[in-house]
Design a protein around this nucleic acid. Sequence first.
DNA 1: TCTACTATTGATCAGACGATCAATAAGTTG
DNA 2: CAACTTATTGATCGTCTGATCAATAGTAGA
Lengths: 210, 210
Amino acid sequence: MSRPVRKKAARKTPAERSAEIADAARDVALEQGLYAVTLRSVAARIDVAPALVAHYEPNMDVLIARTFGTVVATELAEVEALVTPLATPRERLAHLLDTLLDGTRDDVTVIWVEAWAMGRRNEALAQRVRDEMDDWHAFLEGIIAAGIDEGQFETDDAASVAWQLLGMIDGLNAHALVRWEHAGDRGTRIGHAVEGMLGLHRGVLAAPTE
Amino acid sequence: MSRPVRKKAARKTPAERSAEIADAARDVALEQGLYAVTLRSVAARIDVAPALVAHYEPNMDVLIARTFGTVVATELAEVEALVTPLATPRERLAHLLDTLLDGTRDDVTVIWVEAWAMGRRNEALAQRVRDEMDDWHAFLEGIIAAGIDEGQFETDDAASVAWQLLGMIDGLNAHALVRWEHAGDRGTRIGHAVEGMLGLHRGVLAAPTE
DNA sequence: TCTACTATTGATCAGACGATCAATAAGTTG
DNA sequence: CAACTTATTGATCGTCTGATCAATAGTAGA
């Protein structure tokens, strides 16, 4: 006689349960992508009835949008913490590129790519995507502007360079999702493009800092 | 008394029907994306029973992969026809960038973006994506190699520049899918980055050809 | 004309999805 | 201890998905 695998879940405070659901959604998204974030998958992960998730999240589109937001905002915070301490804008930029293109963040890349596609059918998500892109853009622009101030970079439009850079990073990472062979060395030779955008002499960006 | 809307479809030769299904799948993909290419949506578009589509396409993953392939290969052929007649590699490259970043090809961009995401669950599609990326890469590399031969471009690694360029184009276009404000002027200022990659003087690429 | 082939169909299956709702039970307040 | 609130549940609905299969009906060839 096999009995039901799950007993009734312990009653928790709304705050606790809500956080638990958010965490589960985040984990599912990182492991299997945004399309896998469903009522049932989230419920199963915390061993709870699907209806409970629906009770806390009356609209799945919103949960998906929020999950995207937390994943991406977390990544930005991590990269910021990693790069900001560095001494010069040039170092910060070089280290940022190395970090974002080292091929260890495919889980987040999938979420970005799926978000661009899903955003056309999920306006809450689209809004969130725009917001997070704005945050990333502001971060990059800050580095570039600092470089201009210190006379390291030369460009008349830091904002424009920033979104070009973002596009480049996101595109190269997206390419890697299908394991395209050429995507392997992403990051090793992106330097010249960036040097071109910032009026640097060839090789300056990749050169070791002394 | 409402009668069934559809009579039995006229019997066609396998070749005809097969082509009809392929066309319908392509139209659905261009209008609503790859995720909308389903047995039922394709069948409905040509006013035929879903089972008939299944009869011709025993596996939807394969139909989706093939649909992606035709859409993307067609686009490549169009761009090639547009650009190849131009006199110099510099002109070809400039015109290619203008064309691909003019914001009129979102339908194809969606297909690319969805394909990168779907490719992780659909190996047939992933293989096709890699193949089409190879074709695009070869095309770009050809232009760049020609530029090197003619002394217009300066780089030691045309292949590497080619995939960086691809990444840039795809990333910037993907950003536009969620109608990010900054994505509006994609293409107007991509020049400096390319100039950096190709050792050109600033502004040379965007300058009018005389 | 008779036969063989097969294009096309409706019916149906099992599996997902989001969502809703009445019933239960755990906890809180009086 | 009783009354109330509400976290949690199972059951269920309607809709979508890919897939299978026996039955029907055009068509081509002998």
